[in-house]
Design a protein around this nucleic acid. Structure first.
Lengths: 336, 336
DNA sequence: CTGAAAGCGCTTACAG
DNA sequence: CTGAAAGCGCTTACAG
């Protein structure tokens, strides 16, 4: 491998000068500079970021951990963070935790060992609380993404109360009196918040308590069993006529169950989903969707991290971004 | 930050011993070992991967560059590579090129500067050929992913000829005599191969040349215009009765156009797609899909890279994996 | 079983 | 405008 030493020899200068030419850190005689540049080209020299980072105690890289970068909402957040990173001149190290606390811990460890300048983290359900002790204060800058918590860190996520309230009213206006919320694993902060919002907003919208069904479970099998019981068991008149699925993954499991039960959307059951699927304009049923500004959330996370890196003492900021509700035919049917 | 020096002082040993305890690289007296371990715990010491890598000339990390990790097929390949990386003890540095040659070049540069032990690359259309000069031979190990080329590197991708032939015959059997291939940007190797396979296979299946329509374009607007012209212009009797979309992105643009033209699937138009959408069982139209074994392709790429890293002199391997064709209602209609 | 020391490839005060 | 040298935090022959 070519190092600065070889370049310096070829150009007949010291490695100091090569370094300063490379980084533009001090004026260099134009002739000398040109000789160095020529030597770099001739040797195909490439700076060693490891050595540079070691010396500078700064890697110009940040870590990003999400549960699954292939999921539409996270994919979009990743794109947002990428844009912010490009603006800051950071290399982005992206890791997937696959919703597994152990893999999350390993990813954090690996990124910290690589001395990232900061970390953006969407924590998994059941995330090890001890994981965050190395962050904040004079530790590595950290921004919590998507899944917020009562913790003294910068955070960006979506506002959940407003849209849940809006959807519930939308459904009530169309005559629905029995509404089911498929919440999923409510240890995930976003899902817990949506559940809480539902339980607060439903009575205010006029639903009686027995007609608010919340299905929560830590695993899909139990969740599906819960959905089945709510939709299939009991008398038809007692069955929910509308449901809200709290994430894309949950929506997929829910729709599959609804299909198996032979229920039609929206005639038998109105459906609204959080986050939702791609290309909602191309496929049926076309689903009413609460869409978060995922790209913007990613960008914001990057910006907060940049601010935190520049000023470790800044007051932690908690940013909630407003989703938009896209109404489609899955909730248009009036039952009364 | 805690370094080995502090740990060594606390344990009353040399940094050599700390290092050997950490890495298990030589026997250490059990008492001593325990003192070191205690000191590590007490100080919260964490190894510095930069310094370690610099010294060992080995980072235990690999780079992966795809055009968009949010696209279903790439998302699945990423998961496959992640699994292989976990098995090898590699940290994965993932970058998106967003189908842009410049961003691709910057990503390659950044990863090389970080001294990744190897790189897996799905090249963009119009990729700079000079980009690959630093690879192969005694350079950084490289595996080409998805988009293969006549180059002396390890490569893994999908077999295109077989499934295209199968789909064309499937359509011909159902009475289709005019078939359109929406190929997209044929500079992308996979798309070029699918186009070539179509042009070879269609005549053999009995299609006359004038009834084989290929729509290719480097940008979406031109592509859509081409689709429009083929489906909308001319007499109805001359319009294709079936189409094959060569990727998920192309399929989305195509379906949107088909919808705008008011054509029904499958009655007016049979549709088959390469790669396809998620949850094909949940939405209508349910599309006949050529599904590549994307996870397996990712795993294989990781394995080939591991082999290459272990033996730089090995003969380059080119692996083609077989996709499966999932038949659904979008091509079931018989027109004759 | 253990330690002193060289060296990985850089950056950056310090000195001239 | 330029160079000699220290030092970032490790690993690893070498020596005992």
């Amino acid at each position: 491998m070519t190092t600065m030493v070889k370049v310096a020899e070829l150009a007949g200068v010291s490695i100091s000068t090569v370094s300063h030419v490379l980084n533009g850190t001090r004026p260099v005689n134009e002739d000398t500079r040109q000789r160095v540049l020529d030597a770099i080209k001739e040797t195909g020299y490439r700076q060693d970021a490891l050595a540079r980072s070691l010396r500078r105690s700064k890697t110009d890289s940040i870590g990003l951990i999400v549960s699954d970068s292939g999921e539409p909402a996270f994919a979009e957040m990743v794109r947002g963070v990428e844009q912010a990173a490009a603006e800051q001149g950071w290399t982005l190290l992206l890791a997937n935790s696959t919703e597994d606390p152990e893999r999350e811990a390993r990813a954090v460890q690996a990124l910290l060992e690589r001395r990232v300048d900061g970390l953006i983290l969407a924590r998994v359900a059941g995330s090890d609380p001890g994981l965050l002790t190395d962050f904040g204060g004079k530790g590595t800058p950290l921004v919590l993404l998507d899944r917020l918590a009562e913790l003294p860190f910068d955070q960006v996520g979506v506002e959940n109360e407003g849209p849940i309230t809006e959807i519930v009213h939308h459904l009530v206006e169309r005559g629905h009196e029995r509404i089911m919320l498929v919440a999923g694993d409510t240890r995930v902060a976003t899902l817990g918040e949506r559940r809480d919002a539902f339980l607060r907003t439903a009575p205010a919208a006029g639903l009686v308590p027995e007609h608010q069904v919340v299905v929560a479970a830590e695993d899909t099998a139990t969740l599906v069993a819960g959905i089945r019981e709510a939709l299939d068991g009991g008398k038809q008149a007692e069955r929910p006529t509308a449901l809200i699925a709290c994430s894309t993954v949950i929506a997929a499991a829910t729709l599959r169950t609804v299909k198996e039960l032979g229920l039609r959307i929206p005639e038998d059951l109105a459906v609204a989903v959080f986050d939702g699927f791609e290309h909602p304009d191309l496929f049926e049923p076309s689903l009413t969707t609460i869409r978060q500004p995922a790209f913007g959330i990613g960008v914001k996370a990057g910006e907060l991290l940049a601010r935190r890196i520049a000023d470790k003492g800044a007051e932690p900021a908690v940013v909630r971004m407003e989703p938009s509700v896209e109404y489609r035919s899955s909730t248009e049917h009036r039952i009364r």
